[in-house]
Design a binder for these strands. Sequence first.
DNA 1: TGGTGTGAACTTGTTCACAGCA
DNA 2: TGCTGTGAACAAGTTCACACCA
Lengths: 183, 183
Amino acid sequence: MVSSQVLGERLDVTPAQIRKDLSYFGRFGKQGRGYDVLLLLGRLREILGLDRTWRVCLIGVGRLGQAIAEYGGFGPQGFHIVAIFDSDPNLVGRDLSRHQVKHVDDLEAFLRIHHVDIGIVAVPADAAQGVVDRLVGGGIHAILNYAPMLPHVPRNVAVRNIDPVLAMQSMTFHVKNYQTSAK
Amino acid sequence: MVSSQVLGERLDVTPAQIRKDLSYFGRFGKQGRGYDVLLLLGRLREILGLDRTWRVCLIGVGRLGQAIAEYGGFGPQGFHIVAIFDSDPNLVGRDLSRHQVKHVDDLEAFLRIHHVDIGIVAVPADAAQGVVDRLVGGGIHAILNYAPMLPHVPRNVAVRNIDPVLAMQSMTFHVKNYQTSAK
DNA sequence: TGGTGTGAACTTGTTCACAGCA
DNA sequence: TGCTGTGAACAAGTTCACACCA
């Protein structure tokens, strides 16, 4: 058993926050006891969709794209790459981690036939919006974007950006203010 | 010149939001005309600290750490790696992109002598909190964390986490809800 | 008694709407 | 006239505080 108190300490949020958030999805706790860890974990995994597998496609087979294709961390968490695309004729047709690289022009057609949940974009910045548009056009509602740009998508599409430079830049203001004012 | 209207369209936020946010830092616009793009850009770069260079240290020289050390994208944006650390005796002493890898035990001592603004953590999850603690102990106020865990830091330390799996997991709820209710 | 779930109070953040300046 | 900067209105999100249950 774990209380909202302890959960809050671990996550750096207030106990009230924990309780409010959990209550949004149901009543998982028992008064006077707290939350059953295993039960809570199980319910949250269900609610968040972490108990099933997800079909993912990868676009871009440069150095980064290859690293992503060969990265072993997605599979164990239920994310399975089902297709890989690129625009380079020299790469199309090649094999990469058990997938034959398809041409990105066939992306939308592929998405119409095969169900895909999430797209990973690993193409150069100037090609990224085009790829994102194709994913959205193909009915994708979640995109993991490695290109160093912020794509434009309809509000019903979730995007997560992985851009280490942007992440660094988003901390410099904090560092600057800290160093000058020792806040 | 650019108006808050146009800026808002590009960034998917309301014009009022643009004006409020900018007004927090000063009065950059001209009534009836809008904002001078070059002036605004220059002032924002100054305010955000993007006009200077930042000293960065890297901890962890596994596959990921090596890729980060050799990544060419940080330098042009003013982020310069000034030291590299690891705990593996086989790696300590080796050269990696013009730096001799130092032992992580010397991290805090190094930070006391040399000024470093930002730390990049690229060690396994179970070693990450220890490294983060050493960085914080050494006076670092910004951390880019590649380890798949959420580190515990004092409120005055900024952390950005780069974890593709977590990013994927944070979209599954959205996808699930979209697919079932076509919201 | 201990700790949840939740309405109510409060705080933070966003949008509105308009005075005022180029 | 067009668009900023900003107080005021509003909305969203967080914290408080307590009834209630095991």
